[in-house]
Amino acid sequence: MLGEVAALSAAFFWALASLLYGRFSHHFSALQLNLVKGVIAASLMLLTLPLLPNVEFSLSPEHIGILLFSGVIGIAIGDSAYFASLKRIGVNKTLLLESIAPPLSGILAVLILGSLLTWQSWLGVLVTTFAVALVVMQPETHTQKVNAAGIGFGLLASVCQASGVVISHYALVAGDIEPLLGAVLRLLAGVGVLLLTLVLIKRQQLAQLVTGFSKMAQREFVLLLIAIVVGTFLTLWLQQIALKYANPAVAQTLIATSPLFILLFSILKGQIPSGKTLFGTVLAVGGISLFFIFR
Protein backbone atom coordinates (compact mmCIF):
# COMPACT_ATOMS: atom_id res chain seq x y z
CA MET A 1 0.00 0.00 0.00
CA LEU A 2 2.89 2.39 0.80
CA GLY A 3 4.20 2.09 -2.74
CA GLU A 4 0.84 2.86 -4.34
CA VAL A 5 0.22 5.90 -2.11
CA ALA A 6 3.72 7.19 -2.86
CA ALA A 7 3.12 6.77 -6.60
CA LEU A 8 -0.13 8.75 -6.48
CA SER A 9 1.57 11.48 -4.46
CA ALA A 10 4.37 11.59 -7.04
CA ALA A 11 1.76 11.97 -9.80
CA PHE A 12 0.23 14.96 -8.01
CA PHE A 13 3.57 16.70 -7.50
CA TRP A 14 4.74 15.91 -11.06
CA ALA A 15 1.57 17.46 -12.50
CA LEU A 16 2.10 20.62 -10.47
CA ALA A 17 5.77 20.79 -11.41
CA SER A 18 5.08 20.20 -15.12
CA LEU A 19 2.84 23.26 -15.19
CA LEU A 20 5.57 25.29 -13.52
CA TYR A 21 8.41 23.92 -15.68
CA GLY A 22 6.48 24.90 -18.80
CA ARG A 23 6.95 28.56 -17.83
CA PHE A 24 10.73 28.39 -18.22
CA SER A 25 11.14 27.03 -21.75
CA HIS A 26 11.98 30.54 -23.01
CA HIS A 27 14.79 30.88 -20.45
CA PHE A 28 16.57 27.51 -20.79
CA SER A 29 17.03 24.68 -23.26
CA ALA A 30 15.94 21.17 -22.28
CA LEU A 31 19.49 20.20 -21.30
CA GLN A 32 20.01 23.40 -19.31
CA LEU A 33 16.75 23.05 -17.40
CA ASN A 34 17.47 19.40 -16.67
CA LEU A 35 20.94 20.27 -15.35
CA VAL A 36 19.67 23.13 -13.17
CA LYS A 37 16.91 21.06 -11.56
CA GLY A 38 19.30 18.14 -11.12
CA VAL A 39 22.02 20.12 -9.35
CA ILE A 40 19.60 21.85 -6.97
CA ALA A 41 17.56 18.72 -6.20
CA ALA A 42 20.69 16.58 -5.67
CA SER A 43 22.02 19.19 -3.23
CA LEU A 44 18.76 19.10 -1.28
CA MET A 45 18.83 15.31 -1.16
CA LEU A 46 22.42 15.21 0.07
CA LEU A 47 21.49 17.66 2.84
CA THR A 48 18.45 15.55 3.78
CA LEU A 49 20.12 12.12 3.85
CA PRO A 50 22.00 12.61 7.16
CA LEU A 51 18.73 13.62 8.82
CA LEU A 52 17.07 10.27 8.10
CA PRO A 53 17.12 7.77 11.00
CA ASN A 54 18.83 4.40 10.62
CA VAL A 55 19.81 4.78 6.96
CA GLU A 56 22.05 1.99 5.70
CA PHE A 57 24.75 3.36 3.41
CA SER A 58 26.54 0.10 2.62
CA LEU A 59 25.91 -0.67 -1.03
CA SER A 60 27.34 -3.30 -3.30
CA PRO A 61 29.20 -2.07 -6.41
CA GLU A 62 26.66 -3.99 -8.51
CA HIS A 63 23.65 -2.14 -7.12
CA ILE A 64 25.44 1.21 -7.28
CA GLY A 65 26.23 0.59 -10.93
CA ILE A 66 22.63 -0.39 -11.70
CA LEU A 67 21.24 2.75 -10.06
CA LEU A 68 23.77 4.95 -11.85
CA PHE A 69 22.85 3.36 -15.17
CA SER A 70 19.18 3.87 -14.36
CA GLY A 71 19.88 7.55 -13.69
CA VAL A 72 21.59 8.02 -17.03
CA ILE A 73 18.65 6.49 -18.89
CA GLY A 74 15.75 7.89 -16.88
CA ILE A 75 17.10 11.31 -15.86
CA ALA A 76 19.89 12.40 -18.22
CA ILE A 77 18.16 11.13 -21.37
CA GLY A 78 14.53 10.68 -20.31
CA ASP A 79 14.02 13.99 -18.50
CA SER A 80 15.85 15.94 -21.20
CA ALA A 81 13.57 14.38 -23.80
CA TYR A 82 10.56 15.20 -21.59
CA PHE A 83 11.51 18.88 -21.34
CA ALA A 84 12.17 19.00 -25.09
CA SER A 85 8.70 17.56 -25.73
CA LEU A 86 7.14 19.89 -23.15
CA LYS A 87 8.63 22.87 -24.96
CA ARG A 88 7.33 21.77 -28.36
CA ILE A 89 3.88 20.26 -27.79
CA GLY A 90 2.81 21.36 -24.29
CA VAL A 91 1.99 19.66 -21.01
CA ASN A 92 -1.12 17.68 -21.95
CA LYS A 93 0.20 16.10 -25.13
CA THR A 94 3.55 15.28 -23.51
CA LEU A 95 1.80 13.55 -20.62
CA LEU A 96 -0.40 11.71 -23.12
CA LEU A 97 2.70 10.24 -24.74
CA GLU A 98 3.96 9.23 -21.28
CA SER A 99 0.82 7.13 -20.84
CA ILE A 100 2.48 4.36 -22.85
CA ALA A 101 5.13 3.96 -20.14
CA PRO A 102 3.01 1.85 -17.71
CA PRO A 103 2.24 -1.07 -20.06
CA LEU A 104 5.82 -0.90 -21.32
CA SER A 105 7.03 -1.10 -17.69
CA GLY A 106 4.83 -4.15 -17.18
CA ILE A 107 6.26 -5.90 -20.22
CA LEU A 108 9.84 -5.05 -19.24
CA ALA A 109 9.22 -6.19 -15.65
CA VAL A 110 8.02 -9.56 -16.94
CA LEU A 111 10.84 -9.96 -19.47
CA ILE A 112 13.70 -8.69 -17.30
CA LEU A 113 12.64 -9.37 -13.70
CA GLY A 114 10.11 -12.16 -14.12
CA SER A 115 7.78 -10.00 -12.01
CA LEU A 116 4.30 -11.25 -12.85
CA LEU A 117 1.16 -9.17 -12.26
CA THR A 118 -2.23 -10.40 -11.14
CA TRP A 119 -5.07 -10.11 -13.64
CA GLN A 120 -6.56 -7.31 -11.51
CA SER A 121 -3.31 -5.34 -11.75
CA TRP A 122 -3.08 -5.86 -15.53
CA LEU A 123 -6.68 -4.72 -15.85
CA GLY A 124 -5.84 -1.70 -13.71
CA VAL A 125 -2.89 -0.90 -15.98
CA LEU A 126 -5.07 -1.06 -19.10
CA VAL A 127 -8.05 0.83 -17.67
CA THR A 128 -5.98 3.59 -16.07
CA THR A 129 -3.80 4.05 -19.14
CA PHE A 130 -6.87 4.25 -21.40
CA ALA A 131 -8.57 6.71 -19.05
CA VAL A 132 -5.51 8.96 -18.82
CA ALA A 133 -5.23 8.98 -22.61
CA LEU A 134 -8.95 9.77 -22.90
CA VAL A 135 -8.56 12.78 -20.62
CA VAL A 136 -5.45 14.33 -22.14
CA MET A 137 -6.72 13.90 -25.71
CA GLN A 138 -9.35 16.57 -25.06
CA PRO A 139 -8.83 19.86 -26.98
CA GLU A 140 -6.59 22.30 -25.14
CA THR A 141 -7.69 25.79 -24.21
CA HIS A 142 -4.80 27.19 -26.23
CA THR A 143 -3.85 25.89 -29.65
CA GLN A 144 -0.33 24.57 -29.89
CA LYS A 145 1.19 23.13 -33.02
CA VAL A 146 2.22 19.51 -32.74
CA ASN A 147 5.40 18.62 -34.57
CA ALA A 148 7.22 15.39 -35.25
CA ALA A 149 10.18 16.34 -33.06
CA GLY A 150 7.93 16.96 -30.06
CA ILE A 151 6.20 13.60 -30.54
CA GLY A 152 9.54 11.86 -30.97
CA PHE A 153 10.96 13.38 -27.79
CA GLY A 154 7.79 12.44 -25.90
CA LEU A 155 8.02 8.82 -27.04
CA LEU A 156 11.74 8.72 -26.16
CA ALA A 157 10.93 10.07 -22.69
CA SER A 158 8.34 7.31 -22.19
CA VAL A 159 10.71 4.54 -23.23
CA CYS A 160 13.48 5.89 -20.99
CA GLN A 161 11.07 6.33 -18.08
CA ALA A 162 9.80 2.77 -18.37
CA SER A 163 13.33 1.33 -18.69
CA GLY A 164 14.67 3.45 -15.85
CA VAL A 165 11.97 2.49 -13.35
CA VAL A 166 12.29 -1.23 -14.01
CA ILE A 167 16.07 -1.14 -13.61
CA SER A 168 15.79 1.03 -10.50
CA HIS A 169 13.13 -1.28 -9.01
CA TYR A 170 15.51 -4.22 -9.27
CA ALA A 171 18.35 -2.41 -7.48
CA LEU A 172 16.14 -0.97 -4.73
CA VAL A 173 14.55 -4.33 -3.91
CA ALA A 174 17.57 -6.61 -4.40
CA GLY A 175 19.87 -4.30 -2.46
CA ASP A 176 17.23 -3.21 0.12
CA ILE A 177 18.29 0.38 -0.54
CA GLU A 178 16.84 3.46 1.16
CA PRO A 179 14.69 5.18 -1.52
CA LEU A 180 16.23 8.63 -0.99
CA LEU A 181 19.72 7.19 -1.31
CA GLY A 182 18.69 5.51 -4.55
CA ALA A 183 17.23 8.80 -5.79
CA VAL A 184 20.49 10.63 -4.99
CA LEU A 185 22.58 8.11 -6.90
CA ARG A 186 20.27 8.25 -9.93
CA LEU A 187 20.22 12.03 -9.89
CA LEU A 188 24.00 12.38 -9.52
CA ALA A 189 24.50 10.05 -12.49
CA GLY A 190 22.09 12.10 -14.56
CA VAL A 191 23.72 15.40 -13.55
CA GLY A 192 27.18 14.03 -14.32
CA VAL A 193 26.24 12.95 -17.83
CA LEU A 194 24.42 16.22 -18.51
CA LEU A 195 27.37 18.30 -17.32
CA LEU A 196 29.78 16.24 -19.41
CA THR A 197 27.52 16.66 -22.45
CA LEU A 198 27.33 20.42 -22.04
CA VAL A 199 31.10 20.74 -21.49
CA LEU A 200 32.13 18.57 -24.44
CA ILE A 201 29.32 19.13 -26.96
CA LYS A 202 27.08 22.04 -25.96
CA ARG A 203 29.66 24.37 -24.38
CA GLN A 204 27.80 27.44 -25.58
CA GLN A 205 24.66 26.35 -23.72
CA LEU A 206 26.68 26.04 -20.51
CA ALA A 207 27.86 29.64 -20.88
CA GLN A 208 24.29 30.77 -21.62
CA LEU A 209 23.04 29.46 -18.26
CA VAL A 210 24.15 32.66 -16.52
CA THR A 211 22.36 34.72 -19.15
CA GLY A 212 19.18 32.72 -18.64
CA PHE A 213 19.23 33.35 -14.90
CA SER A 214 19.97 37.06 -15.36
CA LYS A 215 16.81 37.46 -17.46
CA MET A 216 14.60 35.89 -14.81
CA ALA A 217 12.57 38.05 -12.46
CA GLN A 218 12.75 37.29 -8.75
CA ARG A 219 9.25 35.78 -8.81
CA GLU A 220 10.21 33.48 -11.70
CA PHE A 221 13.28 32.29 -9.82
CA VAL A 222 11.14 31.45 -6.77
CA LEU A 223 8.69 29.53 -8.99
CA LEU A 224 11.59 27.61 -10.53
CA LEU A 225 12.84 26.64 -7.08
CA ILE A 226 9.33 25.50 -6.12
CA ALA A 227 9.13 23.43 -9.32
CA ILE A 228 12.47 21.78 -8.53
CA VAL A 229 11.61 21.04 -4.90
CA VAL A 230 8.18 19.69 -5.82
CA GLY A 231 8.91 18.11 -9.19
CA THR A 232 12.36 16.62 -8.64
CA PHE A 233 13.24 16.48 -4.94
CA LEU A 234 9.84 15.24 -3.69
CA THR A 235 8.67 13.46 -6.86
CA LEU A 236 11.88 11.47 -7.39
CA TRP A 237 11.98 10.49 -3.70
CA LEU A 238 8.34 9.36 -3.82
CA GLN A 239 8.99 7.56 -7.10
CA GLN A 240 11.80 5.56 -5.51
CA ILE A 241 9.55 4.66 -2.55
CA ALA A 242 6.90 3.51 -5.02
CA LEU A 243 9.40 1.44 -6.99
CA LYS A 244 10.71 -0.25 -3.86
CA TYR A 245 7.34 -1.18 -2.39
CA ALA A 246 5.19 -1.73 -5.49
CA ASN A 247 5.45 -3.58 -8.78
CA PRO A 248 7.12 -1.23 -11.31
CA ALA A 249 4.20 -1.48 -13.75
CA VAL A 250 1.72 -0.59 -11.00
CA ALA A 251 3.91 2.27 -9.75
CA GLN A 252 4.40 3.64 -13.26
CA THR A 253 0.68 3.45 -14.00
CA LEU A 254 -0.24 5.40 -10.88
CA ILE A 255 2.47 8.00 -11.58
CA ALA A 256 0.99 8.35 -15.08
CA THR A 257 -2.23 9.73 -13.57
CA SER A 258 -0.61 13.19 -13.53
CA PRO A 259 -3.00 14.47 -16.26
CA LEU A 260 -5.93 13.83 -13.96
CA PHE A 261 -4.45 16.20 -11.41
CA ILE A 262 -3.91 18.76 -14.15
CA LEU A 263 -7.63 18.38 -14.85
CA LEU A 264 -8.31 19.11 -11.18
CA PHE A 265 -6.16 22.23 -11.34
CA SER A 266 -8.15 23.38 -14.38
CA ILE A 267 -11.45 22.89 -12.52
CA LEU A 268 -10.11 24.89 -9.59
CA LYS A 269 -9.33 27.70 -12.04
CA GLY A 270 -12.96 27.68 -13.21
CA GLN A 271 -12.47 25.73 -16.45
CA ILE A 272 -15.41 23.30 -16.69
CA PRO A 273 -14.40 19.95 -18.26
CA SER A 274 -16.43 18.18 -20.92
CA GLY A 275 -18.55 15.10 -20.22
CA LYS A 276 -15.96 12.91 -21.95
CA THR A 277 -13.25 14.28 -19.70
CA LEU A 278 -15.31 13.63 -16.57
CA PHE A 279 -16.01 10.08 -17.77
CA GLY A 280 -12.30 9.50 -18.26
CA THR A 281 -11.58 10.78 -14.76
CA VAL A 282 -14.12 8.44 -13.16
CA LEU A 283 -12.79 5.55 -15.25
CA ALA A 284 -9.24 6.30 -14.11
CA VAL A 285 -10.33 6.29 -10.46
CA GLY A 286 -11.91 2.89 -11.09
CA GLY A 287 -8.69 1.65 -12.68
CA ILE A 288 -6.64 2.91 -9.75
CA SER A 289 -8.96 1.15 -7.29
CA LEU A 290 -8.08 -2.20 -8.90
CA PHE A 291 -4.60 -1.89 -7.40
CA PHE A 292 -6.02 -1.67 -3.89
CA ILE A 293 -8.86 -4.24 -3.87
CA PHE A 294 -8.60 -8.05 -4.04
CA ARG A 295 -5.19 -7.89 -2.41
Rank of each mutant, 00 (worst) to 15 (best):
V159L: 13
F213E: 12
T232D: 00
E4N: 11
A30L: 04
Q120G: 01
A76P: 04
V5T: 06
F213W: 14
A84H: 02
I288E: 01
L86Y: 04
V127Q: 00
E178Y: 08
G3C: 04
G270Q: 11
L47D: 09
V127N: 00
F261Q: 02
S115D: 15
L47R: 08
E56P: 00
L196Q: 05
K37V: 09
G74H: 05
A30Q: 02
R88M: 13
S289D: 00
G22I: 01
A249H: 06
L188S: 13
E62P: 07
R295N: 15
N34D: 14
I40M: 14
P50V: 14
L264H: 00
L68C: 08
L243C: 02
G212T: 06
G78E: 08
I73C: 11
F24D: 05
L51I: 04
I151S: 13
V39F: 09
K87N: 10
T128Q: 03
I167Y: 09
M216W: 05
A149N: 11
G38F: 02
E56D: 12
V110H: 06
L196V: 07
V36T: 13
A84K: 09
V165R: 05
L209R: 14
F291K: 00
N54D: 15
T48E: 10
W237I: 03
I75D: 10
T197L: 15
V132L: 09
N34F: 12
V159P: 01
L181F: 01
F265L: 14
S115P: 05
R186G: 04
L86H: 06
S80H: 08
A109C: 06
K269C: 02
P50L: 09
A30P: 02
